[in-house]
Write a protein that binds this DNA or RNA. Structure first.
Length: 484
RNA sequence: GUGGCCGUAGUUCAGUCGGUAGAACACCUGGUUGUGAUCCAGGACGUCGCGGGUUCAAGUCCCGUCGGUCACCCCA
């Protein structure tokens, strides 16, 4: 009996880890299912890297913070390794604390042969030797989506890529039943903020500090912020901005990139989810432009992301702009629990068993060459990816996101072409290369042609033209959904 | 890394001023009613996280330690 107590003490799970009994594992699968589903529908391809990397990989860009929280590893077979650990306290390998360095390494290795943009997602375990607390464990799952590389140079294209990342995260929250009134994506532009700070006589050396203090703006009282800023030698104008106009919301930043992003978000029907917030800075320095943060119930930060235009270069790749977003399973699980959005028992089993979104693109949407139709592409694609909820389900008071009658038109995997050409033949070739099932040409609001790429049959020839508007009986998404 | 709170039966928890433990649910057995559902009776069940200290006496007070939790730090 005594031995039993002793051995069970030794065999307990390490601090900050979780044992997943059947019901627990299903809950985790539910979240992973939602992650994969949203990513696939939005046209992201899944990748995975090793769960441990060489320690060097993490010392390239990181500060003390990351390095001190690494779980380090060595084989123990090489006397050199053992020696190194004893002498330097640093092992040759480390369990990965984040995905971005691996992503940068993987991208850099094949940068020349990869398409632009390259849309990748991954969801796997990460390890940080932190002290556990709410929403933060030492082993957790994290979902990452990244759009790497740009299909063109213009600011609009950059905004489009940013919007793709935001769109995908919104599709996730939507699919899990999180409402736009309880979760907001706060967006900001670090470039524009930097320009503004310089106009307040903040020096280049002070910039990082200025962002770092700005980032804590919501957490600390005004006088503490002022003291902190003054101690850092930041100019009075900055202090006034920090404690005054940024909180009142009256501050109007000159940020064309942010405006372009907002325009794109309107096209994608994302406006209820996003809000400009010039107090968002997102911690460390590698974010270069757009930054965003998902905030639940007006205070809790759930996740974040942004644009990191020089990171790939830092990891030995060609200069490549990129934008990404990450979300952990622990915080997300907490949020779903709090909102009553985590199914249990039979409902959980059935939700997890539901088929995953198609890996093969179901719809490939292109404009017919008329520039006026190009915005329609984004609107239709957003609706295809989101699906159309059924009226019966919407009318029910006890509706839950996992119920089988949720959708009148189920969400599907929809893609667009990133080629700048307006040549329909080239666009069709792009669709073929990506193995899309349906080729969708937009000739106007009420003139959408759909072709089955496998059979070469035109649905339009038998059913007439389809419509962009989901409320219209001839909605293109319904035609595709019925055949998908 | 710093600080607050917590750790008692399989589970959720109670346990007063220090006097060597209790409830509910769950479990097992028997009985009743034509179901394995209800109800009744009975039963088993704990090194009070672990180690040390104070005391005649510690679940209770003190120190340490491990684990949990919340906040700070940090947020990749």
């Amino acid at each position: 009996m005594g031995t039993k107590t002793k051995s069970s003490k030794k065999l307990q799970a390490p601090k900050g880890t979780r044992d997943h009994y059947p019901e627990d594992l299903l809950r985790q699968r539910y979240i992973q299912h939602a992650w994969r589903d949203a990513s696939l529908r939005c046209g992201f391809d899944e990748i995975e890297g090793p769960t441990f990397e060489t320690t060097d990989l993490y010392s390239i860009k990181s500060g003390e913070g990351i390095l001190s929280e690494l779980f380090q590893a060595y084989s123990g077979k090489s006397p050199k390794d053992v020696e190194q650990v004893q002498e330097t306290g640093t092992a040759p390998f480390a369990l990965r604390p984040e995905f971005t360095p691996t992503l940068a390494r993987m991208y850099a290795a094949r940068a020349k042969q990869l398409p632009k943009p390259c849309k990748w997602f991954t969801a796997g375990p990460y390890f940080r030797a932190e002290r556990p607390q709410r929403g933060r464990l030492r082993e957790f799952l994290q979902w990452n989506i990244d759009v790497i590389g740009l299909p063109g140079e213009s600011a609009e294209i950059k905004a489009q890529m940013d919007a793709e990342v935001i769109e995908c995260s919104v599709r996730l929250f939507e699919s899990l039943g999180v409402q736009a009134d309880s979760l907001k994506l706060r967006i900001n532009d670090r470039d524009a903020m930097a320009r503004f700070f310089y106009s307040l006589d903040v020096t280049e050396n002070q910039l990082e500090q200025a962002f770092s203090i700005l980032d804590r703006q919501a957490k600390l009282p005004a006088d503490a912020l002022a003291t902190m800023a003054e101690d850092a030698g930041l100019p009075q104008a900055y202090v006034q901005f920090l404690t005054g106009s940024v909180t009142s919301g009256s501050f109007d930043l000159d940020a064309p990139a942010l405006d372009a992003l907002c325009t794109q978000c309107i096209r994608l029907n994302l406006s209820p989810w996003i809000t400009k917030d010039h107090s968002i800075a997102r911690g460390l320095a590698y974010y270069t432009g757009t930054v965003f943060e998902a905030i639940a119930d007006g205070e809790r930060a759930i996740s974040g992301g942004g644009r990191y235009d020089n990171l790939i270069e830092l990891f030995g790749g060609p200069p490549t702009p990129a934008c990404g977003f990450g979300l952990g399973d622990v915080v997300l699980g907490n949020l779903l629990d709090d909102k009553g959005l985590m199914p249990e028992g039979v409902e959980l089993m059935e939700a997890v068993a539901r088929p995953q979104a198609s890996i093969r693109p179901v719809a490939f949407v292109v404009p017919n060459g008329d520039p006026d139709n190009e915005p329609l592409v984004h609107t239709l694609v957003a609706n295809l990816r989101r699906g159309i909820e059924s009226e019966e389900w919407l009318a029910r008071d006890d509706r839950k996101p996992w119920q089988p009658d949720r959708y009148a038109v189920a969400p599907v995997h929809a893609r667009v072409s990133y080629k700048s050409t307006r040549n329909l033949g080239k666009l069709r070739a792009d669709a073929e290369k990506q193995h899309a099932r349906y080729f969708v040409e937009i000739h106007g609001d009420d003139k959408v042609e759909i072709t089955n790429m496998d059979t070469r049959e035109s649905l339009t020839s038998t059913s007439g033209s389809f419509h962009i508007d989901p409320a219209n009986p001839g909605y293109a998404g319904r035609a595709i959904g019925e055949r998908a």
